[in-house]
């Protein structure tokens, strides 16, 4: 589902990162580990197509992304990649359900309310759908973010430190949910983390 080949990225100030080649098949989970400053987030941003590499290749869902235009990239990302950011970002003026549907809207898809309700039920927050996002606890927010990443049934799910702010119990839950949901929709799951609690759980690992 996803392969990289000698990806490199240079920051304007001159710092250059070279990343190892990775590949991740559908329904598989890959853990990207590394200490701070090793370019974990940069790597994730490259895979998420939020940054363009200075050299190297990145294939997602059999598409060579280097050849896509800026506009195509935006569309491609909306269609194929679900991102769970480290911090639970939301559009604060919208409620939980609307934040989920926003993914459909921005991805140019029909608003799928039943899908939102279904995911909310699977992730255990159906009673929160009409609440304001600011009123949710950290664990609840993280689950909503996961649901949002799944709204467009992506081919690749990227999670950036999804558990760093959570206690053991919630960490376990979130990891379960990510794994279960990505298997369910047949997506590749890539988790960038330095959380040792996850290391023991997923065996397919790469360290930067």
């Amino acid at each position: 589902m996803l392969q990289t080949d000698s990806l490199k990225f240079s920051y304007p100030k001159g710092h250059t990162f070279s990343f190892p080649n990775i590949s991740c098949k559908a329904e598989e989970t890959l853990l990207i580990l590394g200490n701070s400053g090793t370019g974990k987030t940069t790597f994730l941003n490259l895979i998420a197509l939020l940054l363009r590499p200075s050299s190297g290749e990145l294939r997602i869902n059999n598409t060579e992304t280097a050849n896509l235009s800026e506009k195509q990239i935006t569309e491609f990302r909306a269609q194929n990649i679900g991102i769970v950011f480290q911090k639970p970002y939301f559009v604060n003026a919208l409620n939980v359900s609307e934040n989920l549907l926003l993914a459909n809207y921005l991805g140019n898809k029909a608003l799928n309310k039943s899908k939102a309700a279904e995911l909310a039920k699977d992730l255990g927050f159906e009673y929160l759908l009409s609440k304001k996002v600011q009123e949710l606890s950290g664990g609840e927010q993280q689950r909503v973010c996961i649901a949002r990443a799944l709204m467009n049934t992506p081919k690749v799910i990227l999670a950036d430190e999804p558990t760093s702010a959570l206690d053991d119990e919630n960490c376990e839950k979130v990891a379960d949910l990510l794994e279960k949901q990505s298997k369910l929709i047949g997506a590749a799951l890539i988790i960038v983390t330095h959380d040792h609690r996850l290391k023991s759980r997923f065996t397919n690992q790469i360290t930067l």
Partner: peptide, 15 residues
Amino acid sequence: ERKYEMALMLSMGGK
């Protein structure tokens, strides 16, 4: 205030 929201929407495919 909403810089993050905007960036989020952009990352989700918003033009």
